[in-house]
Amino acid sequence: MSEETEHARMTAITLAMEGIRAADPVRVIKDYLRFSGEEVVLRDGTRLPVRGRVIVVGAGKATGGMAKGLEEVLGDRISGGVIAIPEALAVEYARELRRVEVVPSTHPKTSEKSFEAARRVLEAVKGVREDDLVIALFSGGGSALLEHPVEGVSIEDIAETSMLLMRAGADIFELNTVRKHLSKIKGGWLARHVYPASCLALMISDVIGDRMDTIASGPTVPDPTTFQDALAIIGKYQLLDKVPRAVLEYLRAGVEGRVPETPKPGDKVFDRVVNRVVASNRISLEAMAEKARAMGYSVIILSSMLEGEAREVGKVVAAIAKEIRAHGRPLQPPAVVLLGGETTVT
Results as ranks from 00 to 15, higher is better:
R9I: 15
T14E: 15
L15H: 06
A16R: 14
R21E: 14
P25D: 11
V28P: 10
V50K: 06
V54S: 10
V57D: 08
G75M: 06
R77I: 05
G80W: 08
I85C: 09
A94S: 15
A94N: 04
E96Q: 14
T106K: 01
A117F: 00
A118R: 02
R119M: 09
L122Y: 01
A124E: 03
D132Q: 10
G140Y: 01
A144Y: 00
L145H: 09
T161H: 02
S162I: 08
M163C: 01
L164S: 07
L164I: 02
A170F: 08
L175V: 10
L175W: 04
K180A: 13
G187C: 02
L190A: 06
L200H: 04
I204R: 02
V207Y: 00
I208N: 03
M212R: 13
Q238Y: 11
K242S: 12
L248F: 07
A253P: 07
T262M: 11
D267E: 11
D271I: 00
V278S: 06
S284E: 10
E290A: 13
E290W: 03
A318S: 15
A319P: 06
G328Y: 07
G328E: 12
P330V: 09
P333R: 09
A335G: 09
V337T: 08
G340L: 09
T344G: 11
